[in-house]
């Protein structure tokens, strides 16, 4: 494990904690896309099928359980919590999941490293994770006032993806045969989706004004 990978995982963990903090303590999910959260729950459920078949490390298993548990509990909070669900911007969060899920599944069925159930599911999770942030970005664009926690959540998620790219570059030069085109292309696409958000995030930070994305 290199420093980029560890920093990436910690940033990912921080993003989830920020979101849980907002939902759990402020009892609000305003500005948070349920569609994106449901896609992440599906991403982790399909990617971590190996949690029961392969043991990699205690770190790996614990982190997988955290991401699975947090993503499903966030979905539960937004859909069912008596107070939290009232703050959900249902009318703004209109992105249709299947428009992302179906193309990702078709792509995974045709473009994968091995044609086995676990491998196709794993590849599907990579493709789906790459685009899962889109409903959230669309919702941010529609939200006039993005609160700090929601902005930080998306920023941390984007930072996590960026750090994973540095991790792959590092691994490519330090580990023999570390070539994973599918992972890399999906990861780069995912990071590029944040480019626009990052630009406005840093602008608002530099000028000390509230974050707002142009419609």
């Amino acid at each position: 494990m290199n420093i980029f990978r560890l920093a990436g995982d910690m940033t990912h963990l921080a993003s989830v904690l920020v979101l849980l903090l907002k939902i759990h303590t402020i009892k609000s999910c305003a500005g948070v896309s349920l569609k994106t959260q449901e896609l992440y729950a599906l991403v982790f459920a399909t990617r971590y099928l190996d949690i029961v078949t392969d043991f990699i490390s205690v770190y790996n298993t614990v982190m997988k359980l955290i991401f699975l548990g947090s993503s499903f509990s966030i979905v539960w909070y937004i859909r069912h919590h008596r107070v939290v669900r009232r703050s959900y911007d249902k009318d703004q969060d209109t992105f249709r999941h299947y428009l992302l899920m179906i193309p990702c599944m078709l792509l995974a069925l045709f473009v994968h490293e091995k044609f086995t159930f676990k491998e196709v599911m794993w590849t599907f999770s990579l493709y789906l994770e790459a685009v899962a942030i889109l409903p959230q970005l669309v919702l941010l664009q529609r939200t006039r006032n993005i609160d700090n926690l929601t902005g930080q959540y998306v920023f941390l998620l984007g930072a996590y993806r960026g750090l994973y790219i540095f991790n792959w570059i590092y691994r490519y030069f330090t580990e023999p045969h570390f070539v994973h085109w599918i992972t890399w292309i999906a990861g780069v696409v995912q990071t590029l989706l944040y480019a626009d958000f990052f630009y406005y995030y840093f602008e608002s930070w530099k000028n000390n004004v509230r974050l707002q994305l142009p419609a």
Binding site: N60, E175, F178
Partner: peptide
């Protein structure tokens, strides 16, 4: 590293 090395990532 074997061909599953990337699977140690999250």
């Amino acid at each position: 590293a074997d061909d599953n090395d990337v699977k140690d990532e999250l």
